[in-house]
């Protein structure tokens, strides 16, 4: 009997887990009624389990269309002769080993300029680089957008393509006193 109970528990757990991760992965933007109905039914019940076990997942890699914006970042501080670059992340001469940092920057660039996370990010950089309090620091983004043609481009068309780069300042802050 205990074996039967244990096996029943395992079967129920498997069904629960399979339903939970499938319901979580469904994106309402697909607008597919049976999937949405399944998500509406299952997700409210299983969501807590998926989150607490860190099994949350969303499979939108290179989809619906691949990411076309290419961003590179510079951290600059104000000096006597204008802005000076103190760090580059991404791009041909940027630090390529900092993959985690690059991903984090790609995500915070979509936040508002006065978002406390962005301000905090610059303050931490001030402390890391031992920048004196009161000096302005900013994160500059250099970006280009890849084309979205209606048909595959030929090798010649790709060869002649040159990205059109733009620059903007994502956010600026004043470095806090070093002691803090």
């Amino acid at each position: 009997m205990p074996r039967f109970l244990a096996r029943t528990a395992i079967v129920l757990f498997c069904l629960w887990h399979m339903s939970a991760i499938a319901a979580f992965a469904i994106d309402r933007s697909w607008n597919f009624a049976p999937f949405s109905a399944f998500k509406d039914l299952v997700d409210p019940v299983t969501r807590g389990y998926v989150l607490i076990t860190s099994q949350w997942q969303q499979w939108n890699l290179f989809s619906p269309d691949p990411l076309r914006r290419i961003s590179q970042y510079r951290v600059e501080i104000s000096g006597g002769s204008g802005w000076q670059t103190i760090a580059k992340i991404g791009g041909p001469d940027g630090d390529k080993r900092r993959a985690g940092m690059m991903k984090a920057l790609r995500r915070i660039e979509d936040r508002r300029a006065d978002d406390p996370l962005n301000q905090r990010f610059l303050h931490v950089l001030c402390r890391r680089e031992r920048i004196v309090g009161g000096i302005s620091i900013r994160l500059v983004r250099r970006f280009a957008v890849l084309p979205k043609p209606q048909h595959p481009l030929s090798v010649e068309e790709w060869r002649s393509y040159a990205p059109s780069w733009s620059e903007d300042t994502l956010f600026t802050a004043s470095c806090p006193p070093l002691a803090l």
Binding site: A25, S63, L146, K148
Partner: peptide, 29 residues
Amino acid sequence: VIYIASGIDKATGTMWWNGTAVASALHHG
């Protein structure tokens, strides 16, 4: 779940259908 969710999400875009998605991803810096 990974492949079907990923496939459906791709199918809701346009670049995978018109065959330009892979070239675009390959040219991303």
